[in-house]
């Protein structure tokens, strides 16, 4: 699959990654190499094959509805780059 600059821009936007001008071409060619490498998959006949999302088919791993939280808010917030009044903080969100 040919990868274009537009593809890279589109994907970078979805992934919230800033790609600078000078990185653009490298990403185009790297992605193209990797995607082309994966294009071999199109040759596999998967007509009636269901996808496998997990090697092990586990089911119904559920927890009881019982409160178990015992964390201190200071701990929860201590790694935050910016916080205020017990909250995490970001620049103004325009809704």
């Amino acid at each position: 699959m040919k990868i274009t600059r537009e593809d890279v821009e589109y994907v970078a936007n979805l992934a919230h990654l800033k790609i600078s001008e000078d990185e653009q071409d490298a990403f185009v060619s790297d992605m193209e190499n990797i995607i082309s490498f994966a294009d071999i998959l199109s040759g596999v006949d998967t007509g009636d094959v269901e996808p496998t999302f997990h090697a092990l088919e586990l089911e119904n791993v559920l927890r009881e509805d019982v409160v178990t939280n015992d964390y201190d808010r200071d701990d929860l917030l201590k790694n935050a780059p910016s916080k205020h009044n017990g909250c995490f903080e970001v620049p103004k969100v325009v809704e």
Binding site: D65, V67, N69
Partner: peptide, 27 residues
């Protein structure tokens, strides 16, 4: 109206101090 959140044991709540009913999972 469960007592706890969908994927962790934190209490579901309304009107408490911010970020009290939180844990590593729901953060």
């Amino acid at each position: 109206s469960t007592a706890t959140k969908m994927y962790c044991g934190c209490a579901t709540s309304f009107g408490s101090e911010p970020n009290i009913h939180c844990c590593p999972v729901c953060l």
